[in-house]
Computed example of a mutant assay.
Amino acid sequence: MHIGLLTDSVASLSLDDTLDLARDIGARSVEFAAGDWSTSPHIDVPGLLRSESDRAELLRRIAGRGLDLAALNASGNQLHPVHHIEYDGKVRDVIRLAGALGVTTVVLMSGLPAGAPGDTVPNWITTSWPPETTRVHDYQWNDVVLPYWADLAAFATAEGIERLAVEMHANQVVFSVPGVLRLREAIGPIVAANLDPSHLLWMGADPLAAADALAGVVAHVHAKDTRIEERAAVRSLLDPLTVPHVDERSWNFVTVGRGHDVRWWAAFVDRLRAGGYDGVLSIEHEDARVDGVDGVREAAGVLRDALDLSDADR
């Protein structure tokens, strides 16, 4: 297992400075984001699709730092009831580019549709009551999600993609382990998991148990941490306050190590290894209180120590 960098963590840096940072922290790989949820600060997807020479130059710059390209990230809501054509187009362009670059893993979300035909807002169902929520959930999965994903999987396979690594994320139809497994069972083994512990933590799941349950299914890992604040006892973990409200929220995304210590991360590595995963721990920095470069460096130090501790225990 090795350290990588999701380059949106330092979106203000140039491509070359970002690659230099990845090399300097001891990363072996990078992951570029270019879906609807990213400003795509480091790669121009349409331009790279048009130009073989530009693709070759990008790969040369990556390899020149002793790095490889672990994945492209197409995260967004491609099933949005209003913007689905635009957002799906971005997902497919990222898949095309991954194939053209020889990258076999694309990280993405499941998407979240409306609750009924004609609705204009995505509808996230997290409870079975009242009864109409179950009808909405069934409609989303059977009428929208599964047909869409059957087509997307066929498209990705034709482009040379081996793994569509679905991230369990809020406001998506797949937000927990059962959702990943349901989608994989219906569509096939091209559907895998991007295991990001930060989201599972604030939703009340245990990422260590999730790693066990996803043995053989994890294709990519984001190293991002969450701290549950004491005020969660009053506010609950369901918190609509936006990320900048750090001092008021019931939970916050924090630099790796500031929510869970090195021993926890070593245990996470152990559980991933036990399930057959030996890939990248791609640092994703979203700590509102810590500069991206500083946070990435701090996270890399924690992960190095965690990997060393895990190796010592083997």
Score class of each variant (00 low, 15 high):
D119W: 04
G160E: 05
L181V: 02
V45M: 13
A223E: 04
V290F: 04
A74Y: 00
W265M: 04
T127F: 07
D270P: 00
D143P: 01
R184A: 01
V293C: 12
I283E: 09
K90T: 10
H285S: 05
L49T: 10
E185N: 11
R50G: 15
A150P: 00
L67Q: 08
R65E: 14
A274M: 07
A156Y: 03
R182L: 12
A11Y: 08
D16I: 03
T255D: 07
I62S: 06
D278P: 00
G179S: 05
V246S: 05
W149R: 05
V173H: 00
S282C: 13
D206L: 11
D119H: 11
M168W: 01
I25E: 11
R297H: 11
D239Y: 00
V243D: 15
I161D: 09
S310L: 02
A232T: 09
F155G: 09
L238F: 12
G64L: 06
V262Y: 03
G276D: 13
Y87F: 15
S40G: 15
R271F: 02
L195M: 06
V296D: 10
D20I: 02
G259H: 04
T104V: 13
A114K: 02
L181Y: 00
D313A: 15
K90S: 07
P189C: 06
L21N: 06
V256D: 07
S14V: 09
L238D: 15
L309E: 15
L59V: 11
E52Q: 14
P147D: 08
R60K: 14
L101H: 06
W202G: 06
L195Q: 07
R182S: 08
R50H: 13
L112N: 11
I187E: 01
V218E: 03
E86T: 14
S236N: 13
G102Q: 06
N73P: 00
R289C: 14
F175A: 09
R227C: 10
G188L: 03
S310V: 01
E86V: 12
V145P: 08
L79I: 08
D212R: 15
N171I: 00
R227V: 15
L164K: 00
G188P: 05
R50L: 14
S9G: 02
A170C: 00
V94F: 01
G89P: 02
D206M: 10
A150L: 12
V280W: 00
G276Q: 12
S75K: 03
L214W: 02
V144F: 04
G99D: 10
